[in-house]
Design a binder for these strands. Structure first.
Lengths: 106, 106
DNA sequence: CTTATTGTTGGATTGTTGTCAAACCTTCCA
DNA sequence: TGGAAGGTTTGACAACAATCCAACAATAAG
């Protein structure tokens, strides 16, 4: 049960977060993580129609931007939103993006 | 005194706004427009060190994303933030981004 | 030990983006 | 009427990004 490397809260860069969220696939992932909580890479990717390596690429972008936390347990990896860290670093940002994302994917 | 074409408020897309804001140059422009209000393209570009055609490219991205309004008066073009429209479409988003941008460019 | 599960990595491809330079277009002014 | 001022457009180019595929790695299960 280990954590994958990720930026410290103070190191999270605004433009990287915005860039991570500016892709429709990743925005959907983030919205799902917000709605359903922690999920495995497998479950996140299963009904996107995208190749698993493509999804792995997106997971990495989100993690390196500081948007998600990746926890490994056995052969599974669990992604979850870094809500508190993002709120501390950029207050209100994630909430407003998530609210805005709602009327995008009904 | 005319307006350049821009998306209607209801047509503004979240991912396009995020993409427009995810570039350091454009984020600085938006922060300046927020701080100083309406500005001409010339004044916005003069101390960026970038070519005027490059700046023109950024103005267009911001306008087509629905982030700025462009008003032409004589040979000058004035850019301003579409604050109210963005607030109506994505409540809180612009404010949180601008607040977050503050500790980026001191 | 062998096989299936759950992902990551590297390479290839295709498309997008940021930048500059040169040419152009409009509008103002002398 | 001819510049000059203020921007845009087009073309070129390098860097980056999204995607797929094949191969690999680690862990769990039989």
């Amino acid at each position: 049960m280990s954590l994958l490397p990720q930026p410290a809260t103070t190191e999270i860069q605004l433009t990287e977060v915005l860039r991570a969220l500016a892709d429709p696939v990743r925005l959907d992932l983030v919205a799902r993580l917000d709605r359903d909580g922690e999920e495995t890479c497998f479950r996140l990717g299963v009904d996107t129609g995208l190749h698993k390596s493509t999804m792995s690429h997106h997971y990495r972008i989100l993690r390196e931007a500081g948007v998600v936390l990746t926890r490994q347990d056995g052969r599974r990896k669990y992604l979850s939103l870094r809500r508190a860290d993002l709120e501390e670093r950029f207050p209100g940002l994630l909430d407003s993006v998530l609210a805005a994302a709602l009327d995008r994917t009904p």
